Amino acid sequence: MRKILVIGIGAGDPEQLTMQAVRALNEADVFFLLDKGHAKRDLIALREEILRCHVRRPGYRVVEDADPERDRTTPTADRSGAYTRGVDDWRRARADIYERLIRDELADGECGAFLVWGDPALYDSTLGILDDVLARGTVAFEHTVIPGISSVSALAARHRTGLNRVGRPVQITTGRRLAEAFPEDADDVVVMLDAHRTYERYADEEDLYVYWGAYLGTPDEILASGPLAGTAERITALREEARERKGWIMDTYLLRRLPRQDPQPPPDA
């Protein structure tokens, strides 16, 4: 039986790997890496650096393949279903690649590994795509998941803040969902996958505070925080400069609605 390890490798710093993740790395015979193109070659380089830092067993192989393109232009709320179809098409294309890699590059009895940015359980498709491959019935394997430090955890740590406050919920959402409305039942909202600077829509709200970070855990890490009304413009400038310089950006932010002040009681008559 082939074995697959889905290893959370943290937000970018090789020192963020857990001891469990390091042990898992040293079990693998083959590491599967998907190349997202020249602009994001840094993501492959960081994974290769993690292997150099932590893998001690000799003779392991690295197999790369091109990540399929995904249509990111259709809004989530599109009534035609184009967004859902686009995601489904992309997942099927990735499943085709995973199926071929596991079948052709991994012998019976060998162990292969996918290195997942952050944590495999948070806004990552690897687990669902592996389930799709298994459902096809064309190649058999067992798989194990090793959790990792997510960009959400790294963001809170770098800003020295908690994600939630006493007795209050925290919601993790996407830029696409935030564009529809600010969640009504949460005053602490973590936003991921925001390619369109959705925070700008709320920059006039004076009771919002923002904790923002890009390239968390990497040498290119950028941080900013403050009242959103006075910080949104600075974040946008930092994003655009970084995107121009590197060709891509990965950022995450926490929007925190500050406590509303209770009105002062009237003085005694």
Rank of each mutant, 00 (worst) to 15 (best):
V6S: 00
A157Q: 06
H196L: 12
G10C: 00
R103W: 12
G37N: 11
R85M: 03
V55I: 09
D42H: 15
P68D: 04
R160T: 09
V139D: 02
P147G: 03
G230A: 08
F182Y: 07
A203S: 15
A195S: 11
G137W: 15
R160Q: 11
G217L: 00
D185F: 15
I172L: 08
A21C: 04
R176I: 02
Y209T: 14
E200C: 06
V116D: 05
V170W: 03
A181H: 06
E241S: 14
R61N: 11
P75W: 14
L5I: 10
I249F: 08
A140T: 09
E240M: 12
A24F: 10
L223W: 01
L127D: 00
Y199A: 12
I149L: 11
D88W: 13
S80R: 12
I7T: 02
T236R: 06
R168G: 10
R177W: 09
D29M: 04
R239S: 10
L258Y: 10
S151A: 13
V133R: 11
R47D: 02
N164W: 14
I7E: 01
A45T: 09
D65I: 11
D96Y: 05
Y215W: 13
L208D: 04
G37Y: 14
D188V: 09
G112S: 05
E240F: 07
Q261K: 15
R201N: 09
A121S: 14
A135K: 15
Y253S: 02
S125Y: 04
R168T: 10
R94A: 02
R2D: 07
G81I: 12
L5M: 09
G128D: 08
N26W: 11
P14Y: 01
M250H: 04
A66P: 00
H143D: 07
G10Q: 05
P263L: 12
T252W: 00
A232I: 00
E221I: 07
L228H: 02
H38Q: 14
R243P: 05
G112T: 02
G81D: 02
D108Y: 13
R197C: 13
R256G: 02
R165L: 06
V6K: 00
G213E: 04
R52L: 09
E69T: 09
L155A: 00
D96P: 00
L178C: 01
V152F: 03
V63I: 15
I129W: 03
I102Y: 01
R234P: 06
V189G: 03
R72N: 07
E206W: 13
D268H: 10
L25C: 05
I249L: 15
A24R: 00
D71Y: 08
M192V: 13
A95W: 04
C53R: 14
E64S: 13
R103I: 04
L101E: 06
R94M: 13
R2A: 04
D96S: 13
L33T: 12
L17I: 08
Y199C: 11
E221D: 07
P259Y: 14
L163C: 06
E221C: 07
M1K: 13
D42K: 15
